[in-house]
Structures are given as structure tokens and as C-alpha cells.
Design a protein around this nucleic acid. Structure first.
Lengths: 240, 240
DNA sequence: CGCGGGTTTGATCCCAGTCAAGTCCCGTGG
DNA sequence: CCACGGGACTTGACTGGGATCAAACCCGCG
């Protein structure tokens, strides 16, 4: 575990896409840096994407809007994530990416992707690996939305988020991790109404608590039990 | 549009992963063929995968089982899909892939993936593209499970499946496409109970009907309206 | 004929959505 | 200093969509 040169956070294998060596390359590959203020969008659903990004710091959310105007959060994005890759490859995004806290992102040109695959197969493999890992995770989200009730969803989500941010080294002295989302965002992510989201959070309060831009989990295994999750530890990315 | 040498079905750009030239290569790359009878599983959740596959013919479903025993279908798999790629890359699958009708699949060795990225970047790019396309689609499923009600989910799903199979050239003389799933499978895919799935199907009966292993859609735009979907046509895969 | 898997239908219940008020908090301006 | 307003969070009352339970029904099969 080493400090990362581009991203100020410490990297964990599963959660940071690139190793140090890869990062040196990606620095050469990158086309610029982007900053977003809370509420600003990086791209909108329907956009043709000419760039994709890695998140250096800050958090946001990726959502779709249904024809009837309702919003569904697809996933939250954290430092180390890649954003907009699938939209870049398929030509058009499905989703809007909006910042929840101030974000810094590293921008890469779509036009250099062929280069990447032609001349830097280890990095190309790394990119593919990340896409696969995200697909893996989206499958978990589908299971949650399809088969878990409100309490289970909430417990599952809070635990997932907490573990992820903890692995990024973002836990502060009190054991809390940054959580810039509103309850309405959580509601849109879990497919619940705002009111019920609030009531469900209240029911979980002995185990976990959000407020003041922070998420605090005091009983992780209690959450895991309520969320029907195995408390899994991150897995190592297999090398090429 | 040409008959495909490996897969007996005709290929459409979005829905068939490989072009003719690419297929010639993949034939050299492949490690064997697998056949499954209905009900048989190709791999189980928790397996370490040493192979991934392309579906040559037949249909199946990919599901996870929650700790409480409930099943959630993540997606249906159709000819032309890639199966088990994300599990192969990340090392372990989340999901079980089970055949619904007799399936033929083409098997590829995980051990040859580095080869693919090292020496055949166009194909590596194609594989990545497919992973991205699937991610795109999983996002749509998440929006459906999170924000659509039973009628909308059902209409959306039937239309999606129909369009997909139609694009594969699987529509018969009566305009029906093969649909080997039970109502219980649909229920598990849409996050509904079996009973409610049945009642919802009944409500849609003037527009679409399943039975006898077939799905028949008589009013696609009616379905699109009820399903809150834009009736989108498949998009071309951009070349490297 | 009986059996079993899948489908259909009705009755009842409850989780979560909706509506409607409040509360808390913070920033702005008189 | 307080009044005001707006955004996020909270709480209560009511409603309804979908789950659950239960019982037929249909049909291919031994």
C-alpha cells in the first residue's frame, strides 16, 4: 500500500484501478483535469462522450431519468472509480454524472483508446478489468433492488459504502467517512420514497447514522445481518 | 448481414459481438464447445472461472441467490452474448448461469486472455466493448427495478426481449420469438412475486402474450408506452 | 387413472407510497 | 437583534400496489 501520485488517497487493489507503474503511464495518457462543484454535472444522459475520467477526489452520483421524470441513481462514484467508460465505448451515455461534493477528475481522450489497446495492453487489460468489476457490482445492486425490502436495502447500502470508503483510507478519527449525499439521493439509489428512506434510516440508527456530511457505522456486522450481506473483504486484482 | 460461421444465426452489429473476421480469429482462440440441457448450470455463484463463453444458440438466465434463499435474475442470456467474462476477469462469479432451453456455447480459456490483449488488440477492444455494452444495459435494469411498477416492468421487459430476439433473426412466421422461460423466471427477473407476475401478464394480454415457449408481441408501441421506454433501435458498434 | 409442474384466480394483509404538517438549521436582510 | 424564507430532515395519518396464502385448473406423462 503506497501513496498514489495522482490521487492523494491511499490505494487498495480492488478499489483503485491503477497500480503505481500504470499510473505513471496514465499520467502521460491523460488529457487534463476537471473540477466540479456540488450539483454540477460532468455529462448528461444522451451525451456523446469524447472523454472518460478517473475520479481523483470527491464523490458523486450517476443516474438515469425515466420518461415520466423519476430519477434512479445507478451507482455512487468514489475516488478511484472510472467514469464514463461505457458511454465512451458505446458512443452514448445512459446516465448523468453529478457531483455531490467538490470533485477532481482526470480526463482521458476517447481518441487515444485505440492507442491504449494497440501499444499498452497491460493498461488496456486494466481498463477491461475495471469494467468487469463494475458489472459485477451492478449485478449486486440489481439483486438488492429486486429482492430486498427497505430495511435490508438500506443496511446493505450503508455497509457497502462504508467499507468502500474505509478501504480508501477516508475514515476520520471518529470512525466516520465522508457522505455528501442527501436522503433524497439515497432514496433514488434504493428505489424508495424520500419519506420511507427517512423512516428506515431512523430504524437503523443504533447501528449506523448519517448527518453533517458523514456516515458513521457503529455495528458493521449488525448491518450485515440486517442487509443479508456477507461482510466481504475486497479482493485483489489478478495480474495480467 | 451475413450468416455467421460459428453461430448458425444471422448477426446484427449490436447484438452479435464479433464480426466475420473476428470470428475467424475466435475460432482459433476457442477451446471447445459446451452443450447444456434445460435446467443445467454452466457455472455457479462462487465458482472460480477458468473459461468464458459465447452463446451460440439457446437461451438461459444468470441469477444470484440471496442469503435468505431468494433468487434474483440479473439478466437473460441470448445467442451472441458473452457469458462469464466478468467472473473470469475478477476471479470469481457472483452469479449462476442456467440454461432455459438447450444451449450451445463456445468456450475460451482464461489463460489465453493475456494473449488476446498482447497480440490481438482489435479483439481485445471488442471484448471490452461488450463488457461496456452490458454495463450500459444493467444500468437500464437498475432503473427498471428501482422506479417502475409491475405493469411498466413487464411491458419494458417483454419489449426489450422481443426486440433483441427479433434482431437476431429468431422471429418465426407468426411473428413470435422463442421464449423458454417460466413465469417464475420472469418474476425473479423483475423482482415480482409469481402471482403478481401472472396477473400483470394477463393485463398486458392484448399487447403481448407468452405461451408454448414463445413470446408474441402484437402492439410494440403500446408496450413501449406502458413500459415508459423509447422504442430504440440497436446501435452500431463503433470500429476501433 | 393419478401425479406433478406450471398457470390461473380469489381473498386477505402489510410494506411502502402519498399527502400533509412540522421542525431544524442556516443565510439574508431589515 | 429578530423576521423571514428556503432547503433538508422528521413525523403522523391514510391509501394502495403487490406479497402472501390458498385453492383450482390444465396438461403431458407414466
Amino acid at each position: 500500500m503506497h501513496p498514489c501520485k495522482v490521487c492523494p488517497l491511499r490505494a487498495t487493489p480492488l478499489f483503485h484501478p491503477f497500480s503505481e507503474g500504470e499510473l505513471n503511464f496514465m499520467i502521460g495518457f491523460r488529457a487534463g483535469e476537471v473540477r466540479l462543484e456540488p450539483g454540477e454535472a460532468l455529462f448528461h444522459e444522451g451525451d456523446r462522450l469524447e472523454h472518460f475520467y478517473t475520479v481523483l477526489s470527491g464523490q458523486g452520483g450517476r443516474y438515469t431519468t425515466l420518461p415520466n421524470g423519476e430519477r434512479q441513481m445507478v451507482n455512487f462514484v468514489f475516488p478511484g472509480d472510472i467514469a464514463g467508460l461505457s458511454g465512451t465505448l458505446t458512443g452514448e451515455t445512459n446516465t448523468t454524472l453529478q457531483a455531490a461534493s467538490p470533485m477532481r477528475l482526470c480526463r482521458f481522450d476517447r481518441s487515444r483508446l485505440p492507442d491504449l489497446f494497440r501499444s499498452h495492453h497491460e493498461r488496456a487489460y486494466a481498463v477491461t478489468w475495471i469494467a468487469a468489476a463494475e458489472e459485477h457490482f451492478l449485478g449486486e445492486i440489481i439483486a438488492t433492488l429486486g429482492r430486498r425490502n427497505a430495511l435490508q436495502r438500506m443496511a446493505w447500502a450503508l455497509l457497502r459504502i462504508y467499507v468502500r470508503l474505509e478501504a480508501l483510507g477516508l475514515r476520520d478519527a471518529q470512525g466516520a467517512v465522508p457522505f455528501p449525499y442527501r436522503q433524497a439521493d439515497l432514496a433514488d439509489a434504493l428505489g424508495l420514497s424520500l419519506v420511507h428512506t427517512n423512516k428506515t434510516l431512523a430504524r437503523l440508527r443504533p447501528l449506523a447514522r448519517i448527518g453533517g456530511g458523514k456516515l458513521m457505522v457503529s455495528d458493521g456486522s449488525g448491518l450485515a445481518e440486517k442487509g443479508l450481506t456477507d461482510f466481504e473483504m475486497p479482493r485483489q486484482r489478478p495480474l495480467l
